[in-house]
């Protein structure tokens, strides 16, 4: 079959316990751009058991069609039944593109579909689009993030990618949007060789950093663990939270959950205050969509200033206490 016979932009609708992962709606939004270019319909692929009720939400957020495949063996995620279901659907409909969120589930699942469909899968893309030659590309940071690459899948279909969460903004829900819900039957084997024994929700004394509206972040230039208290005090005064770039976490000063960047979380708070962070590409990938970027660094010209709305070339050890003092004075 020729490449042009494959049609449809598919978004894997990741859900667990009937709750959609937000990355699904982000991908539906990005899919509108791809559709504007290639004119193909946008499909959301909903696998599970008793999940049909999520279909209208997917349509309201931009899906033209929702394929629902329900089976008891798909009730909770395990790799092989999901692999079987997606493979059968893709072989029947022959989409040109399948996108998955680059979540722990998506990255567990998508490589198995790659093998059964014998196609390409780009990992952890941060952007997608069509280039000057009309080729669909996925952008990924390569070699630790100092270089970006355009990955293409020229001859195989579907062209697949896992896409990093929080890169795109979901569309506002439009309940009047029309879409088609297609029910499909898949033939999957119950997985008797894999079992989830126990799940413990992570409990934290504060909200996760990707939900905070203001972050105060420390980086490589922070001289001691003690100095993080200063960052904590500033964050508290402004109703925000402390986060960090990788060196702070590598030093063991903060847990991995509070790391921003390519190997950590992607955040887009209303305000982010970067303290002693030079702004490697790996870090920028994780925070560049923040609304207002404010940076303090003692070296002029470091990359973080290129993306900052406000900057102070100063030693944080004198400036941050002065800011704390000034805030207290005005309260």
């Amino acid at each position: 079959m020729a490449e042009e016979d494959y049609k449809g932009i598919w978004i894997f609708a990741e859900q667990q316990n009937g709750v959609l992962n937000p990355v699904t709606l982000e991908l539906l939004a990005k899919a509108q751009e791809l559709k504007a270019h290639n004119g193909e319909d946008i499909y959301a692929i909903l696998l599970g058991s008793d999940v049909k009720a999520l279909a209208p939400t997917l349509i309201a957020h931009g899906a033209d069609k929702v394929i629902v495949a329900e089976d008891a063996a798909l009730a909770s995620y395990s790799a092989r039944p999901y692999q079987q279901a997606m493979t059968q659907l893709a072989e029947k409909y022959k989409p040109s593109i399948i996108l998955y969120g680059a979540t722990s589930l998506g990255r567990d699942f998508a490589p198995r579909v790659m093998v059964s469909l014998k196609t390409g899968l780009t990992a952890d893309a941060i952007d997608l689009g069509y280039d000057e030659d009309d080729v669909f590309y996925q952008t990924t940071p390569a070699y630790g993030g100092s270089i970006l690459a355009h990955i293409v899948i020229l001859e195989c279909r579907p062209q697949m990618a896992t896409v990093r969460p929080k890169m795109f903004v979901p569309l506002e829900a439009d309940e009047s949007r029309k879409g088609e819900i297609i029910t499909e039957t898949v033939s999957v084997d119950a997985e008797d060789s894999y079992e989830v024994l126990d799940v413990t929700q992570k409990i934290s004394d504060h909200e996760p950093i990707d939900k905070a509206s203001l972050l105060v972040c420390g980086g490589r230039g922070i001289k001691s663990e003690e100095d993080l208290k200063m960052l904590g005090e500033l964050a508290e005064l402004l109703g925000g939270q402390v986060a960090a770039s990788r060196p702070i976490v590598d030093n063991g000063w903060l847990p991995h959950e509070e790391q921003i960047g390519q190997s950590g979380a992607t955040v887009k708070p209303d305000h982010i205050i970067n303290i002693a962070i030079s702004g490697s590409v790996q870090y920028q990938v994780g925070m560049q969509n923040s609304k207002c970027i404010i940076s303090i660094n003692h070296t002029a010209g470091v990359p973080i200033f290129d993306i900052s709305h406000y900057g102070a070339v100063a030693d944080y050890r004198s400036l941050v206490p002065a800011i704390i003092e000034e805030i207290k004075k005005r309260k």
Partner: peptide, 17 residues
Amino acid sequence: PSSTKKVFEPEKRNTDT
């Protein structure tokens, strides 16, 4: 199936600081 079409150093996004 997948190949690298091009590699490039990231574009500097100059914000008016």
